[in-house]
Design a protein around this nucleic acid. Structure first.
Lengths: 141, 141
DNA sequence: ATGACTGCAAACATTTTGCAAAAGG
DNA sequence: CCTTTTGCAAAATGTTTGCAGTCAT
């Protein structure tokens, strides 16, 4: 049976890249991460065996290829493994913690949007964030 | 009758700020803008009568106060006047142009999300972006 | 073998900070 | 007045680029 690493290596190659140590390190880390992370945090996580410049290039390329998805949860751009399922984010603007949620209605919403905006041909990806207060932070106010 | 500027001045004061020239310049410009803009573009637009550092501070404060809303449409963070109505963005990833669209179902979606994520008390704002290809760019491929 | 990829150094850009002077209420 | 706000200079961060050497295929 294929190891975790072999599976990801295949995924990386399918996306058109060579399966290098830095790329696998980044992808393995992101796959295991519980919430989206900034370049800096990813770089720190993979350790100094991978240069931060390389992390920039890898993550940007992965994002373009759709292997990772990007968003801005209020603290600058963050990235997460796209293969962990389509979901959205709910962010507490005080403690910055992130919750995931899913929504069935996205397909319908996209159809509606396309109907409204003539001029658009095709939606490739989406990003939806809700900002507010978690119960803990709300209680403190 | 109150001039455009007087109305915005009042809005700025209601939000808890002093109605200074730089703040009104930024808000007037953003109110008239047809799509969300970066700090750099806002600074350039209001001219060099307002320092770019001041634009940073103003826009950040306005965003926190809810006077402007922020998002990342793929090219870094951009801002727009919040009073121009609740809407979402559709962005062509090739030519970067932005279309607006609205969605009735947002309230229901938020209720759903709150149901899913125990731990959340209240949603204050949201941000929804669709990325894809406009017809012009799709035709060129 | 050979093109893709990485690391390193340095350029470049963006964002933040501190403080004295200016301006709003 | 008296506090908030601004401009300026400078520091601190963040991001991109160029290139020689390394690695995956």
């Amino acid at each position: 049976m294929a190891s975790e690493e072999e599976i990801l290596a295949k995924e990386v190659r399918t996306a058109g890249f060579r399966a290098t140590t830095p790329r696998l390190a980044v992808l393995i880390f992101l796959k295991g991460a519980k919430y989206p992370l900034s370049i800096q945090r990813i770089a720190k996580a993979v350790g100094k065996k991978v240069d931060q410049v390389t992390v920039y290039r890898i993550v940007e390329a992965f994002a373009k290829a759709g292997l990772v998805s990007q968003s801005d949860l209020g603290e600058g751009r963050v990235y997460e493994y796209a293969g962990n399922g389509d979901h959205h984010h709910m962010v507490c603007t005080v403690c910055k913690r992130v919750w995931d949620f899913t929504d069935e209605g996205m397909g319908k919403l996209i159809q509606q949007a396309l109907k409204q905006t003539r001029g658009f041909a095709e939606v490739k990806s989406h990003s939806l964030e809700l900002f507010g207060l978690c119960k803990l932070c709300a209680a403190k106010i």
